[in-house]
Design a protein around this nucleic acid. Sequence first.
DNA 1: CGAAATTTTGATCACGTTCAACTTCAGTGG
DNA 2: CCACTGAAGTTGAACGTGATCAAAATTTCG
Lengths: 258, 258
Amino acid sequence: MPGTIRKLTGRWETPFTTRLKHFVDLTPDDLAALRGLIEYEALVEKRRDLVVDGYPCTKLSFIKEGMAARYRVLRNGKRQVVDVLIPGDVVGLPGSFQDRASFSVIALTDMKIEVCALDAFINVCYRRPKFALALSWLAVEHGNHSAERIVDIGRRTPIERLAHFLLELHRRLMMVGRAEPTAFDLPISQEVMSDTLGLSVPHLNRMLTRLRNERMLIVADRRVQFTDIRALEVLAHFQSATLARIPAPIQREQELIA
Amino acid sequence: MPGTIRKLTGRWETPFTTRLKHFVDLTPDDLAALRGLIEYEALVEKRRDLVVDGYPCTKLSFIKEGMAARYRVLRNGKRQVVDVLIPGDVVGLPGSFQDRASFSVIALTDMKIEVCALDAFINVCYRRPKFALALSWLAVEHGNHSAERIVDIGRRTPIERLAHFLLELHRRLMMVGRAEPTAFDLPISQEVMSDTLGLSVPHLNRMLTRLRNERMLIVADRRVQFTDIRALEVLAHFQSATLARIPAPIQREQELIA
DNA sequence: CGAAATTTTGATCACGTTCAACTTCAGTGG
DNA sequence: CCACTGAAGTTGAACGTGATCAAAATTTCG
């Protein structure tokens, strides 16, 4: 069995590797190392907690299928979703780096994940700096999404926010091959969306209706179909900045000088 | 003069190294390598742009003195500050990883920065994986601040936001030795603060007044003095999660097994 | 000292929340 | 098979918060 895996290793592909390949070259050897980190695969059902605010967390989970939300619940009962996680994303990236997680993560759908120990991952990073850099890249990419969300919530109108959110999610899903050019599955409730965008459910619903009335999209069966993606992009001030690739190491002739 | 610096290298200390030391051990050799990356030091005056939205950016700047803001201006003229940068922070961390920066950075005060080339830094990361991991840590820490800001803007009331923002800034400044236990210099205008918190200037001003009236703080001479920090923390739901240290590499007895 | 930026205060009003009811739909058991 | 249940989506009315606009007061700086 392990032998079989070893042979197929060069073609091993998951949403996570698909995503990585956008900014780093992975040799068959790299892939094997990555593959070797996985301790086990797990199924998580909808509504199950993956990480609980306040508890330690020492695993990294790579999402193969399904979506999750990272959120915080405040004393007054309000909830803010800080991040919607999709296939190719890593659960526990911020949580594992802290003594105890400061956000919870809940499965929005049934999920399939691959789990690895944080220490093991870090250890491989020492041997393969490329991985450590990839980790930085992932964190930076995530930071960009967060920044975009801050702009959304802070200064964009509700309808712009919604449009921007849908476009960004669509682009992310495209990156891992989980969306068509003008449509994608959106298996999340309006409550989650409103908690993501800092809106009330009724208002989110109204904005959604408005986008529908303006013939920019169709929502049906937990699926979004863009009917006028250009108009949406204009409305949302959407600009997709692409992450640069990680530079390869240059040869070290003058290493001793520095 | 350079000779002097070289000799003192083991004790070389900047806000950036101070910050790093919170989660990674730096040998004199590490410090020297870091020191060697710096191409030059520069002074930037208040209101000067450090990074402009839409332009490429290939340098990393370590802030030694002063503050800056990363922001985006929208078509309607509104501005959202996504990040206030303080000594020890790195300018260009997200910008440099993209083909062109998606946010601008402006100096809020006169600043002193140390500049290094991104390629040079990345290259050292290949030789010292510890640095690459440190980069990840920094990005993750930054991500945590962003997440906290999303919660602020999305679901906290204006007064809670303000309290939270001030406490968080204070904690960050403490980490690099730029604040006293219950006070710190806040050389930024209310306009910047309101753009950070997604509020209007008049409303921010009122909230500030309210905190003053409630005897939680005193603001004078661009300086904040907490007079009831506990009350503030309760008001803001403030919880300071500490970033774990980067694990050291474990010995590689079984490396060949995996 | 004069000009510009910043802080402070006030009055008005629109937007989005809140609360509530109602609809629709999927799943479940009688 | 259909009534029952609970979750999710939709719509409406009323209220309150925070934006907007405007102007004065104060500070900063050339």
